[in-house]
Every structure is written in structure tokens, then in C-alpha cells.
């Protein structure tokens, strides 16, 4: 199975090799979607894949290491009323989560493909895209 997690670190936890440990100790595949660090700690958005049991154990490990863990269902939300279906977002979305339906010419947002990178946020002229993490 696959799940997306938001991790919050205090400065101490920022020094731990946690993504390495998730892979080495729990056999999880880790895809880092976003990572940022500043003077008060860090934040990371990852997608982990593996067996359900391993994911659970991995999450327990993170919690023990003092990392805040929050699963996310959606990272970016579209305001359907604001979207004009122009399509300016489709060529900048790196994962093709935003695409144009060739028949209806509406912009389709496939949330499962979205990695919450946020490049669409400031590219959207009617400001229909909002990042939630």
C-alpha cells in the first residue's frame, strides 16, 4: 500500500537519518515530495510504499524519534467555482495530475497523481488552487 505523510521535526530530530531508516529498517520505499528546514525545525512531505504492517511500524518509529506524523489525503485542493478551465496549469504540473479532457475541454484534477509540489499555486490566474500542507 501507499500513503502520504506530513512529518514535522524539531531541530534535534532534523539530524536523524529517518528516511534512510524507514528504508533500511522497515523496507519502505520513500519518495520525498517536499522538504524544508528553518530555525525552528523542518517539515517533509513523503509518500511511503510497503506492506501495511511495515508502514505502521515505520510510523511508530518516527513517533518514537520525536517526529510529528500526520497522514494526508489531499495536499492541494481546487476551488471548482473559481477554475475557468483555461489549462494554464497543465504544462507546468510535473506529475500530470492536472490535464485537459480532450472532449469536454475541462481541466481534470487527479488527486492521486498530485505530489503537492505547489508549482500550480501561483500559476493559476483565478487562484483556484490551494495548498493545504
Amino acid at each position: 500500500m501507499k500513503t502520504k505523510l506530513v512529518l514535522n521535526f524539531n531541530p534535534e530530530a532534523s539530524n536523524l537519518p529517518i528516511t534512510h531508516n524507514l528504508t533500511a529498517k522497515y523496507g519502505l520505499l520513500v519518495n520525498i515530495l517536499r522538504a524544508e528546514i528553518d530555525e525552528v525545525g523542518g517539515k517533509m512531505v513523503i509518500e511511503v510504499s510497503g506492506k501495511a504492517e511495515s508502514i505502521k511500524n515505520g510510523i511508530d518509529y518516527l513517533k518514537e524519534a520525536g517526529v510529528g506524523v500526520r497522514p494526508i489525503k489531499e495536499g492541494v485542493r481546487r476551488d471548482d467555482d473559481a477554475c475557468t478551465h483555461c489549462g494554464v496549469c497543465i504544462s507546468i504540473c510535473p506529475t500530470k495530475a492536472l490535464s485537459l479532457d480532450r472532449e469536454t475541454r475541462k481541466v481534470i484534477f487527479t488527486e492521486e497523481k498530485c505530489v503537492a509540489c505547489g508549482v500550480c499555486i501561483d500559476a493559476c490566474p483565478p487562484r483556484a488552487m490551494e495548498i493545504l500542507i
Binding site: T84, G87, I90, K106
Partner: peptide, 23 residues
């Protein structure tokens, strides 16, 4: 079509004009 050729590269395209609303 979603892609054009510029100097031998396939470049993804985006409209700024909404065909959905034009229709």
C-alpha cells in the same frame, strides 16, 4: 495537441484561453 516541437524538443503546451467557456 498538448505538445509542440521547438528546436527538436517536445515542449508541453498550455492554453490561457478557456475553450470550455468559449464553447
Amino acid at each position: 495537441s498538448g505538445e509542440v516541437d521547438i528546436k527538436g524538443r517536445r515542449v508541453p503546451t498550455s492554453p490561457l484561453s478557456s475553450i470550455y467557456k468559449a464553447r
